[in-house]
Amino acid sequence: MRSTQLRRLRRAIGAAALVGVAATAWLGLVVTPPAEFFGNLVRLLYVHPSMAWVAFLAFGVTTLASALYLWRRTRRPAWDLLAAASAEVGVVFTGLTLVTGSIWGRPTWGVWWTWDALLTATAVLFLLYLGYLALRRVPMSEERRGVRSAVWALIAFVDVPIINQSVYWWRTLHQRPSLSIGPTNAVEVHGIMAVALAVSFVSFTLTWVWMVWVRFDLARRQRALEQLELAHAIAERLESVEAGS
């Protein structure tokens, strides 16, 4: 059957993601050497950028799925559920991007938070998608929730370049731009370090795929269950009406 094959594929992705993340930790913490300038801190390089990449990927998929839902020709409940699943996992990864970025910032810049352009934009993005999840939690009919959250996702997406441009000007017009250099620009990546970095990107992306898939599947089953419950309730009601007459 197709569905059992799909489930096997999903399980394989999950297993690969788990192995990959374990390998990332092993490569990052044990195998790779400390860097010349950053010392052991460079090990954070194997988690932070891949978190950020997955976060942006997740919101990109949310936007795409929302647009497909809004367009009448391609409107399927599945797009709405996919957008929601991707946004939820994306919020987790964005949160981790901020936390790991902050942990990187403390020893390198001496503060837990700098109003660095990229960091600030990521924080606003995090807030935008918290709003998305909050909007989805408001009880309303399925189609209305789908349309409204899709519209919100598009509005948020349009906002991203504007936010980027404004915080970029904000933090670079009057301040020396050295703060806006992320960890990647200051470290020479070579050999085993490049391998660790690549493993980290691949395995966290796989983790994202697996999580979105599982979350999507759960939402789909939840939806089917709710429809079933509704049908049961209507049937019961009809029975009681018939018994009464």
């Binding site: 606003v124 807030l127 935008l128 709003g131 909007l135 936010i163 441009q165 915080v167």
Partner: peptide
Amino acid sequence: LTLPVVSP
């Protein structure tokens, strides 16, 4: 919803 969007 509004305040993060209008933050720029």
